[in-house]
Computed example of a mutant assay.
Amino acid sequence: MGLRIFETDPDAKPQEREEYKRPEYAFQFRTGMQVNKKPVSLAKWRVLAAGQDTANGIAELMGGEAREFDATKEHDWVIMTDSESVEIVLSGADAIEEKLIQWAGPGLPIHECDGVYSLMQDDLGELCGCPATLKERKEKHRKKKGPGPGIVVTFRLAGLGYELGVGRWIATSWLFAEVVHEVKEALDQINGEALCRLEIEKVEYTKDDGELVSFKKPVITVLGSYADAVAEER
């Protein structure tokens, strides 16, 4: 028999949390997927889309074939694209929402902060208690005892893909978290919407002991004004 403490003290029963809400997006970019319940890093973008028309438009723009994914979810189509790079449009630095986050389950954040102060409603603005050094932060996150990057990038696809609606990519890479301030500084130099390149970059180098190191990292490069780019094409 389980604990029955809430029968004797109903006021102590935890209140149900409201579902963690995000804006609606027409599509989501992913750099990985689950294979046999294990995470796999991809060399080309995987995109989840809401509806067949959106999925077909992304497949036409980025290559790959659109197929039905999960009819029970809002994003019910998936495209394994042929592209490791795509041009996107960002509305400005505010299109990138920086935070560290730890989840208890889908839609249930148990820790959310900017690295120093809490972003959770219950203790908003209070010290978050995270370690001071990046090394310690990474180690706690690796052990599932602390938050990791949850950087939300909201964008449109450039060119003909602009009409497909607003999409997002959630960056969970520490490598991206370490340089995202540089991207936002570059966006601040653009008047209006910015044309950017979003890519999965493959990095390889040989260590002093001869060991070959190879990994993939997401990169955003600010190219310039989107309005100027459109005007040049015309």
Rank of each mutant, 00 (worst) to 15 (best):
P106M: 08
M120Y: 00
D123M: 10
R168S: 08
I96E: 10
E163L: 05
A43W: 01
A12Y: 07
L48W: 07
V183E: 06
V40I: 07
E7D: 15
V78M: 11
I220P: 04
R142I: 01
L187V: 03
D9R: 09
L48A: 07
V47C: 07
C128S: 15
E139F: 04
A231Y: 05
E60T: 01
L42T: 02
A95R: 11
I58H: 04
A71H: 08
G161N: 07
Y162E: 10
R67G: 14
K140I: 06
V40K: 14
R17Q: 13
W77K: 08
E185F: 01
D70L: 09
V78W: 15
G115I: 02
T81H: 14
A43R: 09
V183W: 07
P14D: 08
E201Q: 15
K145V: 00
I88D: 02
C113L: 12
A95P: 13
D122E: 12
G125K: 07
F6D: 12
G129F: 06
I220E: 02
L187G: 08
A12W: 12
G105I: 13
D82H: 12
Y20I: 00
S41V: 12
V222L: 03
A50S: 10
L90R: 08
S85H: 06
V213C: 03
H141I: 01
L134I: 09
E68A: 06
Q102V: 04
S225P: 10
I88T: 03
S214T: 15
N191Q: 15
R22D: 14
S118G: 01
G192L: 14
R17P: 04
E204L: 04
A95L: 12
K38C: 09
E163T: 14
S118Q: 04
E185P: 01
E19C: 01
V116Q: 12
I220C: 01
S83V: 05
V89G: 05
K135N: 02
H141L: 00
G148H: 12
S173A: 13
A231S: 11
L175C: 01
T172R: 15
K13G: 04
A59D: 02
S91D: 09
G107W: 02
A158R: 01
A177V: 01
K145F: 00
R168C: 05
V47P: 10
L127E: 15
A186Q: 06
I200Q: 11
I5F: 06
P106L: 05
A49K: 02
L124T: 08
R234M: 09
F29Y: 13
A66H: 12
S118K: 10
P39F: 06
C196Y: 12
W174Y: 10
V78Q: 11
C113F: 13
V35W: 15
W169A: 06
V86F: 08
E193M: 09
E60M: 00
C113A: 11
T72R: 09
I190Q: 14
I110T: 09
V89A: 02
K38T: 10
